[in-house]
């Protein structure tokens, strides 16, 4: 149970332009077991790039370097692009924030889910269809047969997001990377989606990397939290201990949040210390 599923050591993501090199992720090390790990940070903290770099989905001219990216004992960096495609979706899935950009607009929703299933299992068409409808049911889509035969523009944003999740989960991945999967959803749908992911972790032993900017959500949903700032990990802790975080950046973020039950006149403003950028990254191993 405690054997890590994903191990990342000294991960760098660089974007080189003619004038300068921007380092989006700067030498971070962490591991993920069969648990829920939250990565929190503000825009520009490198949290999304971290998720994408594991699946080798960083776009040109981004450059990913790492001492080690091992998944289930397999060296992901050594894989060819073809082998990587097999890992993507089959073993590791990525759910992104906006479903509208992730679904093919000219393909029926059901066909896209079936295809995701058939690519990795060689199942027959009928089998894939029944499995897909089952999966749509699992993400609590009412009337899954009808949704199966509709096009992406015919479904609402919240449903699109659930379809995406169904599509990412149907090959039964061992690791799911979810990048702000619920921030575009209404609260009721958001809760359902979180429940589905929760269940998969609890029952199937899936690993989950949950990337979010929402401190409250991560603290209540995840097992462990990684806090990123300026491309580095500034702090890591158990999610239920996030309220007692030590790093001034984490403290600053927590204090900057308005609280429903404790009114204050002025919100405290985060004073950024240039030292945080320079400080070495904290290792976030299991």
């Amino acid at each position: 149970m405690n054997k890590p599923l994903l191990e990342v050591e000294d991960l760098w993501v660089r974007f080189a332009s003619k004038k300068r090199v921007v380092e989006a992720v700067r030498g971070i090390s962490f591991s993920v077991g069969r648990e829920r790990v939250g990565i929190v940070g503000e825009s520009g903290s490198g949290k999304s790039m971290t998720g994408r770099s594991i699946l080798r989905l960083v776009r040109h001219p981004g450059q990913v370097d790492a001492k080690k990216i091992h998944f289930d004992g397999q060296d992901l960096q050594a894989l060819s692009e073809k082998e990587m495609r097999d890992v993507r979706g089959h073993k590791i899935s990525l759910v992104m924030q906006d479903p509208k950009f992730s679904l093919n607009p000219v393909m029926k929703v059901g066909d896209q889910i079936s295809e995701a299933y058939r690519v990795h299992t060689n199942a027959s068409k009928a089998e894939a269809r029944s499995r897909s409808i089952e999966m749509l049911n699992a993400v609590q889509i009412r009337n899954p047969e009808r949704v199966y035969d509709s096009y992406p523009h015919e479904v609402s944003g919240g449903m699109g997001q659930r379809i995406m999740i169904a599509m990412m989960l149907i090959p039964e991945p061992d690791l799911l990377i979810a990048d702000e999967p619920t921030s575009a959803l209404d609260v009721t749908v958001q809760r359902r989606v979180l429940q589905i992911m929760d269940k998969l972790v609890q029952e199937r032993g899936m690993g989950l990397i949950f990337i979010s900017h929402d401190l409250n959500l991560v603290a209540s949903f995840c097992d462990r939290v990684i806090i990123m700032y300026g491309g580095r990990i500034v702090e890591t802790c158990r999610a239920d201990e996030l309220q007692n975080a030590k790093h001034p950046y984490t403290r600053g973020l927590l204090n900057a949040l308005p609280d429903i039950h404790q009114p204050k006149d002025q919100l405290s403003v985060l004073e950024r210390d240039p030292k945080w950028i320079e400080d070495p990254s904290v290792d976030a191993f299991l």
């Binding site: 401190l215 900057a256 308005p258």
Partner: peptide, 14 residues
């Protein structure tokens, strides 16, 4: 906006 920036803007508005 990010939470830290949100705090600044809300303070300004108040």
């Amino acid at each position: 906006l990010d939470v830290s920036v949100q705090a600044e803007i809300l303070n300004l508005l108040s």
